[in-house]
Design a protein around this nucleic acid. Structure first.
Length: 423
RNA sequence: GGAGGAGUCGCAUAGUGGUCUAGUGCGGCCGCCUGCUAAGCGGUUUCGGUGGGUAACCGCCGACGAGGGUUCGAAUCCCUCCUCCUCCGCCA
């Protein structure tokens, strides 16, 4: 959420920043609604002050007629207040609705662009690796090894579901455990969060109202399945006023995630790249406002390190204004090369959200006792999504005989096992 | 799912229609006193909105779990919801 005062006082600055995005932003409508709201507020408060003052005198007045007279008058004032208040509530609802629809302002350093083809390469760890035999895609490897069963997934839940068996299931568990331990060493606190959250939690993380049709809502109750643990992590400190010493806070969380992915029918249909349910390790930071820029670099480095330690070829692109995303100020995508599908797979997306989510979730802090409250900054980054990391591991570590060597980092998490073989 | 109880300032509590401008204790902060510490003394202490001011700050309005209602006037009365506690039922 943007600061309404900034919009009120510097509308042109806001307008210019928003123009760099492709997002719809009801700026003028919001400014008009804000003016109307404040006019109604001034009138209402004036009458409330009068009623308060007079009502306090009522019990002191002994003359019955005079007392009755005042009560009558205040009844009229009360009616008028109620009337104005109805209009005021309406205006307030309009302001907050429009405010929730306003996307975040991009950081001035973010490159301009239309879509992901305009993203800017900032780092790369080597060239895409070619195998000296014909690389198989992961769906062939997975089926031959008996570790990914697509037919069973479809039987149980329909298209875009699969079942992991044996070493496949263990590999995913090893990846998650290894990543969580790595992030713990990088200063994160591990948390396990609810997968079902209330509407308010999704509003706080800015997944609502704009991404409503990409999420699953449970019938008859105010529960939604999380599209990412970023949402519950945002609300970990919702409504709290922290002290400056509490920041920064770094959390990491392993969770399942649920997405409708309805737009992408026909795209990425083969394999496990894009499903309605997938696991992922998430990293999340709460920082002081002046520290969030450096935290984004650190967070991105943590994602890169994860790829690096798995022995994968990776690169990092900075997202342009057109690919930045509704709630973000600035962000990067970390991608790994996978020779079977022959593409760069986005395994992590890191973002500095600034105070955008903190305003919605009311995550505040004080620099010292008695100081003003300020909004914290939040950042989020994928500590790598499981399916895409699995794809990259299977396809990069495959052998001519169809077996897959287990990356060294993961072996301690698989009982020392070095290789996955069929049978 | 059913029955009962609770929710007031950071914590603990007082407050059952106007004297609440929400009191008191603890804690925190500032100062005084004091070999040091502790104790003692004095002061201070929430959040939001809005208007004024360069600012420090000041005025007004709102907030006693949330939202409605009754009333000239609500922490206090009524309704709905949320959370927690106790018990019963059901359940992995």
């Amino acid at each position: 959420m943007l600061d309404i005062r900034l919009i009120r006082e510097k509308p042109d600055v806001v307008r210019e920043a928003l123009a760099r995005r492709k997002e719809h932003a009801p700026l003028d409508e919001l400014i008009r609604a804000d003016i109307r709201r404040r006019e109604l507020l001034t009138q209402t408060e004036g009458l409330q002050a009068e009623r308060k003052r007079v009502s306090k005198q009522v019990p002191r007045i002994k003359d019955q007629a005079e007392r009755q007279q005042l009560i009558e008058e205040m009844r009229g004032v009360g009616d008028r207040i109620a009337e104005l208040n109805r209009e005021l509530v309406e205006a307030e609802e309009q302001v907050s609705r429009l405010l929730l629809e306003m996307p975040n302002l991009p950081d001035p350093q973010v490159p301009d662009g239309e879509d992901d083809s305009d993203n800017v390469l900032v780092r790369q760890s080597g060239e895409p690796r070619e195998l000296d035999f014909e690389a198989k895609p992961h769906w062939e490897l997975g089926e031959a090894l008996g570790i990914i069963n697509f037919e069973q997934g479809q039987r149980i839940s329909g298209s875009r579901f699969y079942v992991l068996h044996g070493d496949g299931s263990r590999l995913q568990r090893a990846l998650a455990s290894w990543m969580l331990d790595l992030h713990r060493r990088q200063g994160y606190q591990e948390v396990t969060v609810p997968y079902m959250v209330r509407r308010e939690t999704l509003r706080a993380s800015a997944h609502l109202p704009d991404f409503e049709n990409t999420m699953y809502e449970l019938v008859g109750e105010d529960f939604w399945l999380i599209p990412t643990s970023e949402s519950p992590l945002t609300s970990l400190h919702a409504g709290e006023i922290l002290s400056a010493g509490d920041l920064p806070r770094q959390y990491t969380s392993y969770s399942a995630n649920f997405r409708r992915e309805q737009i992408s029918a026909g795209r990425d249909v083969r394999g496990i790249k894009r499903g309605h349910q997938f696991d992922k390790v998430e990293m999340y930071h709460f920082t002081l406002p002046e520290d969030s820029e450096a935290a984004l670099d650190r967070l991105t480095a943590h994602a890169e390190e994860t790829c690096h330690l798995l022995g994968l070829t990776w690169r990092t692109v900075e997202r342009c204004t057109g690919d930045l995303g509704f709630k973000n100020r600035r962000g990067y995508d970390v991608e790994v090369w996978s020779p079977g599908v022959r593409e760069w797979l986005e395994v992590s997306s890191t973002s500095n959200v600034g105070d955008f989510q903190a305003r919605r979730a009311q995550v505040r802090f004080k620099r010292e006792a008695g100081a003003r409250t300020e909004f914290a900054h939040t950042l989020n980054g994928t500590g790598l999504g499981m399916p895409r990391t699995m794809i990259a591991v299977l396809e990069n570590y495959q052998q001519p005989d169809g077996s897959v060597v287990i990356p060294e980092a993961l072996r301690p998490y698989m009982g020392g096992q070095q290789r996955m073989e069929s049978g």
